[in-house]
Write a protein that binds this DNA or RNA. Structure first.
Lengths: 337, 337
DNA sequence: CTGTTAGCGCCTTCAG
DNA sequence: CTGAAGGCGCTAACAG
């Protein structure tokens, strides 16, 4: 039954090189106790045979597979893909591979994928949630280190990396203040998102420090362009003198910019607008392009990978680490850009 | 050196159940020659120990790993993620897992990832290109079946699945004709994309069949909103009587819709607009929402997975299979929707 | 029905 | 410096 192995095996290489399997192994792995000429021979044989060592066998031996699982609930991949790319970077090409599994927000599916991953002996797990808000930890002991990325775990004993939403609000507000705006409106999304409140908090903090207050209570709604348009009109209606708007997402900002422009406001001349997420497809297509907050997701993935790596190596971390965001300045706040 | 295995091993289960390893194996795998009471005991022991079989060991034995690699060059994940989800679906939860690797469009990196995948004994490979145009096949013999998805291989001996771009153009044109539009403009993207030309070809074919011709030569440019806006204005300038526009992407359509509206045209009253890709973030945020072509990427992923599965099972396919697209009707062509 | 044996491909002692 | 032997966890033959 045992299907013939695909590629050449170490035995094949050894035979071709005229040495024993053990010697071939040592030669290829850079062990010292091999004569140079022998090593040479083995290498030639290996490349002649296109030898690729069987990671399964190696993994079986060491009890480690050189793979980690990335379990995501983020259907769209809007967040998990940059994170995955960052993780791939951090692990360094080739020595560790990443299994991506999509649980599609279904806990049963998640449990299932977890089992599949575990059976493949992943050395660790990165869990990416669908929202920036905290999520329940994986149920049951995974048996391997876990790092939660983007969505932190509600258990403070777990290791989580997320972006600092309070700071992102602060950044946006400080930028508007810096360019001389003082009558600022806030339009954000679904109020059930804790992150939406955090960002507002950051904005209020920064405004207070500058001796300002927003022109109105923050407007909560949904993460859509339509809401951005409607809210911007409402804001303008009640506070025609508004000169800056901070939005909870690029979609909202996009809608706000369109509505403001249609109401005759020039941007950034009359009103400056800041978005959030740096979703390029939206932010660069806007007129003018959106100044926005980038969550440095790739960096977040790298960090998660490094923490996981350390945990695998026996140095686990605990608690939530918040990574800084970055302001990306474009035309919606600075006309010279 | 051999690190202790993480979870319980089959030996542990057997010991706890008071049977031999072989018997435990048979019991858990549903082999017939086991007494029911014994099987019962083994199952209880296994679940008491949270036993998860080691897929690596199994893979080593069978020469198959129960994993496939998904090698993508599509940075954004705009196309590869739906394809991956479709593939996951088709493989059925758990029995086969998918390794996602991003080559980032770099051939060297691709070669590297390929090696990593091969060393992990993937049973097959799905290769997803960055564009719908044909791409060079993987260099060197992978040693396992390969299916090219989205981007077909230039080698007709390879197995490829892609979406039918000629048909997508046809669909769009037929829809406009069906709703009574006869003065149709075409705005598409980068002329170096073969798919852009294919779609135009489909449009022309369908129009010809309806006894119509476009109002102007197709406008090629870039896949951006800015180009969509500019081209729409130019089109309107030269052909003020245009009553339908077919766009090569949703970004272009989005720009076109905005520009047309700003020029005082009502949509779809005066001008109906069709996009391409069904990129929801763009198509649903538009005013009105975009009628567009959906490439059924998830279905494409499923199909790729099935073809790969068959190939792994010894029934390889050859040539390029084109999957149909689907028209998604929204407000930019039908006001009642 | 159950247990023993062999071996998948690899690496690491330990002898020569 | 090189080779023989053992074993990682599992399953498929074959004995009992």
């Amino acid at each position: 039954m045992t299907a013939k192995t695909r590629g050449a095996t170490l035995g094949d290489v050894a035979k071709l090189a005229g040495v024993s399997i053990a010697t071939a192994s040592k030669a290829l792995n850079g062990r010292a106790q091999v004569r140079d000429s022998t090593r040479e021979k083995v290498f030639r044989a290996a490349s002649a045979l296109d030898f690729v060592p069987n990671a399964l066998a190696r993994g079986l031996l060491f009890g480690q597979s050189g793979t980690v699982g990335l379990l995501t609930s983020d259907l769209e991949g809007r967040f998990s893909l940059p994170i995955m790319m960052g993780a791939e970077d951090a692990f360094g090409a080739g020595s560790t591979s990443v299994f991506l599994c999509d649980a599609r927000g279904d806990p049963i599916r998640e449990q299932h994928q977890l089992k599949a991953l575990l059976s493949r002996q992943v050395d660790g797990l990165i869990v990416v949630g669908a929202r920036p808000d905290p999520r329940e930890p994986l149920s049951g002991d995974a048996g391997v280190p876990v790092v939660y990325a983007y969505s932190p775990s509600t258990d403070p004993q777990d290791c989580s990396v997320t972006s600092d939403n309070v700071e992102s609000g602060r950044l946006a507000a400080e930028h508007l203040v810096a360019i001389g705006r003082g009558r600022i409106g806030i339009i954000t999304g679904d109020p059930s998102y804790g992150a939406a409140h955090d960002r507002v908090e950051g904005v209020l903090e920064a405004l207070a420090r500058a001796g300002a207050t927003p022109v109105a209570e923050p407007l909560f709604g949904s993460w859509s362009e339509g809401w951005g348009r409607g809210a911007a009109r409402a804001l303008l209606d009640q506070h025609p003198d508004v000169d800056g708007v901070i939005c909870g997402s690029d979609q909202i900002a996009r809608g706000a910019v369109d509505a403001l422009r249609e109401e005759g406001r020039s941007i950034p001349g009359d009103v400056a607008v800041v978005g959030h997420d740096n979703w390029e497809i939206l932010s660069t297509g806007s007129r003018p392009p959106l100044t926005t907050i980038d969550m440095n997701l790739q960096e977040l993935g790298r960090r998660a990978a490094n923490l996981l790596f350390d945990a695998i190596g026996g140095n686990p971390s605990h608690g939530v680490e918040k990574l800084p965001c970055r302001l990306v300045v474009r035309g919606s706040t600075l006309s010279t850009v």
